[in-house]
Amino acid sequence: MKILDEIANYFKEIGEIALFAKRFFKEAFKRPFERKEFIRQCFVIGYNSLFLVVVTGFIMGLVLTLQVRPTMQEFGAESFMPAMVGISIVREIGPVITALICAGKIGSSIGAELGSMKVTEQIDAMEVSGTNPFKYLVVTRIWATVFMLPMLVIAADAVGLFGSFLVENVKGAVSFKLFFNQVFENLSYGDLFPATIKSFFFGFVIGLVGCYKGYNSDKGTEGVGRAANSAVVLASLLLFIVDFIAVFIADIFYEI
């Protein structure tokens, strides 16, 4: 019975998140727009995550190339390395790894920040001053994650490809020009577009879940910790679901 209750609670939470998303769309296009706070959030979310994302992207490119190279060599297919690494990083690994890192960094910080504002009555204080806290706190943060995540993904992709080039250069004496010519010859808009579009959705999921968990947190400091933690767990899970749906839809278009 406990398992059934947990499943019921899970679906109840998904329903509540859907209602939260509905409220976001209702408020997101209504004046007044909190431009200054949106720009501040873009800085906090985008710029402050850049270093982490770039380092991870670089290591991701290095490791992927080091791991795959011996197998490709066995089949005498090292010349396909730049194409293979380019397609894997741009289409799947770059967006998913970046999104997971951002779910950890951004999702938890939004969850903890809004959660702490909730328990210290700062959100109530905004409300009683005749301000719409949802618009100021939630709408700006979700828009910022939506716009910043694709940029972080592009940065991670670029650095990841550079990491891969370094391995190829050291192990196979491949020049910079040759490596990137090979990468871009084998990449098409059909690889780039679905990956970029799904990055917007990843950003939306991270912002939405972080804000939902923080905005609805309770039970004092314990609730703040739980909001931060569950924001990461739920956002990570939803990222894979969104990724599956995105790949499934993109695949239908490829077949056509």
């Binding site: 920040e113 504002m117 210290t120 009555e121 700062q122 109530d124 204080a125 905004m126 409300e127 009683v128 001053s129 005749g130 301000t131 719409n132």
Partner: peptide
Amino acid sequence: DYIRTEVGFLFQGSALYDSMTVRENLQF
């Protein structure tokens, strides 16, 4: 929202916006 601007509310824990300076708290 209009009525709320006519009613001041002092919270038990002060509820200052901790990411803003005192000036920004008052400007908000």
